[in-house]
């Protein structure tokens, strides 16, 4: 039973991340997820300290604030400060991460958050952390009660604004010209990324969550020609990675989140080499045929 629950949690995280990840990868914002996932750390710690509890509402609020901040600062440094793009991302997220680590080590007694958890999370521990009512009814892992609503919110957002998101993703100038509030959608996406990061934080950690956002959508992008297909494929890839990764991690007695990422990476490699359209070997064969014919 706990096996199924762990895989379910990993898959739910994977699905939420993949859906958002498709838009991020297509909009060349992949590294912003890396930045946000590091930068929500101080937000989480400050929320812990202020509320003196692991109250999810405060954690999501804290993380959301810092996620927004990161996205805003990166943009501001580039636009107003004329700092080159790579450096402005690098400066913002390492700074927030450093502040987060200082806070974690400073208040390690007050808050129940260790440094390992920050980096790679613990899926098994999250599965065992169940929600018990006062009369002893077991409602299952607490995380599930967060992940399911979050996924519903993401799906609703994407379904309602599908056309708009599509236009913004593929032709931002056109989107602006027909009066779509591009900045608003940008920050809505950022907010959803921050919420997803903080919800999956304990399960997969700050660094590995980046893989959940980027790898399945990138794999799907190598195969799909349409946005819908890309989203569906990336969901399939993340579920397969969760399933295989979990069982491999049991066999090798190691971190399940780490193993899921490794499997996702290997799937990417496989598709990258063998994809019918843009695959490495296929391309080589094509260029070889081209040289022969000329």
């Amino acid at each position: 039973m706990s096996d199924i629950l762990t895989i379910l949690i990993a898959s739910l995280i994977g699905i939420s991340c993949s859906i958002l990840g498709c838009f991020l990868v297509l909009r060349r914002m992949a590294l912003l997820t890396d930045a946000i996932s590091h930068a929500v750390l101080p937000g989480i710690v400050i929320a812990f300290l202020l509320s003196q509890s692991r109250d999810t509402f405060f954690m999501v609020l804290g993380a959301g604030t810092f996620g927004f901040f990161t996205s805003f600062l990166v943009e501001w440094l580039q636009q107003k400060g004329k700092i080159q793009a790579d450096a402005s991302i690098g400066i913002v997220f390492t700074f927030f991460f450093a502040v987060g680590i200082i806070l974690v080590t400073q208040y390690t007694q007050e808050i129940d958050l260790d440094q390992e958890c920050v980096l790679y999370g613990d899926l098994l521990h999250v599965t065992l952390d169940v929600w018990l009512l006062t009369d002893g009814t077991n409602l299952g892992p607490k995380t599930l009660w967060l992940l399911v609503p979050l996924l519903l919110i993401i799906i609703t957002f994407v379904v309602i604004f599908y056309r708009t998101l599509q236009i913004i993703t593929f032709d931002i100038v056109f989107a602006q010209s027909i009066g779509i509030p591009v900045a608003l959608f940008h920050y809505a996406l950022t907010a959803l990324v921050s919420f997803t990061t903080v919800t999956s934080f304990e399960s997969v950690g700050a660094i590995l969550v980046v893989a959940f956002f980027i790898i399945p959508p990138a794999t799907a992008q190598l195969l799909a020609k349409r946005l819908q297909h890309m989203i569906i494929l990336s969901i399939i890839f993340s579920i397969v990675a969760s399933l295989l990764g979990y069982y491999l991690s049991v066999i090798f007695n190691s971190s399940s989140s780490g193993m899921i990422v490794v499997v996702a990476g290997l799937l990417f490699l496989l598709v990258f080499l063998l994809a019918p359209r843009g695959g490495y070997f296929n391309k080589k064969k094509l260029s070889h045929a081209a040289t022969l014919s000329s």
Partner: peptide, 18 residues
């Protein structure tokens, strides 16, 4: 940026597994 993200998180995931 996507490629950097993939390579970074894959190698780090492998490191965490080990």
């Amino acid at each position: 940026d996507t490629i950097l993200g993939i390579v970074l998180s894959f190698f780090f995931g492998l490191g965490i597994v080990l």
